[in-house]
């Protein structure tokens, strides 16, 4: 049986952020500043969106140049996914899921473009360019106006049309 003093010592050790005594502790300490280049995840509340901003006009130009080859002119789909428009979701269980008819969070658009696009040169766009493509795709889906500027303040406030279209499958698992 652990003594009261032992438990107290253990509590103090935890409270001080001390390392686990019975664990290998072979991780190297690293600062968030040194993780920054990898820390590209954006959260729905806008956490971790970078500075900068973007507009429809630049987005349209970039889209035609870097995206239309796979996703079709105006996001209508090509060898890869349709991004704009889309049928009503209750029309068939295989309905095409687009940013306009399906995606729940506007921040996901920024996150995915910055992380994975354009093929095969992801993370080659500046943050302003990613904001611009996000603004273009949201405007093409008539979710924002063409003159709306997207940045770390405006993007998380964009309300997506299908925001309430989801049922959490197993709430007890979360």
């Amino acid at each position: 049986m652990p003594t009261r003093n032992f438990l107290l010592a253990l509590f103090l050790a935890f409270a001080a952020g001390a390392v686990f005594a019975d664990s290998p502790n072979l991780g190297q300490a690293i600062s968030e500043a040194d993780i920054k280049a990898w820390d590209i995840s954006v959260l729905p509340d806008g956490s971790n969106l970078p500075p900068g901003s973007g507009s429809f006009a630049l987005g349209a130009r970039l889209y035609a140049e870097k995206c239309a080859g796979c996703h079709g002119p105006g996001g209508k789909g090509g060898v890869n996914n349709q991004l704009v428009g889309g049928e009503p979701l209750n029309s068939r269980i295989e309905a095409t899921k687009t940013i306009g008819n399906f995606w729940q969070q506007a921040t996901s658009v920024f996150d995915y473009i910055r992380r994975a696009m354009p093929w095969p040169n992801p993370r080659s766009l500046t943050d302003d360019e990613v904001y611009s493509l996000t603004a273009y795709l949201l405007a093409m889906n008539k979710i924002i106006a063409e003159q709306d500027v997207m940045n770390a303040q405006t993007l998380p406030k964009v309300r997506m049309p299908n925001r309430d279209g989801f049922i959490i499958r197993f709430p007890e698992k979360i």
């Binding site: 209750n90 029309s91 399906f102 996150d111 995915y112 992380r115 989801f166 959490i168 979360i174």
Partner: peptide, 23 residues
């Protein structure tokens, strides 16, 4: 984070037009 794969691919559509999330 609502990454691409949880936002889109792995949220299956139901006949009602609603979709299951976090399956």
């Amino acid at each position: 984070a609502m990454t691409y794969y949880e936002s889109r691919n792995y949220s299956p559509l139901l006949p009602s037009g609603k979709a299951y999330q976090f399956y």
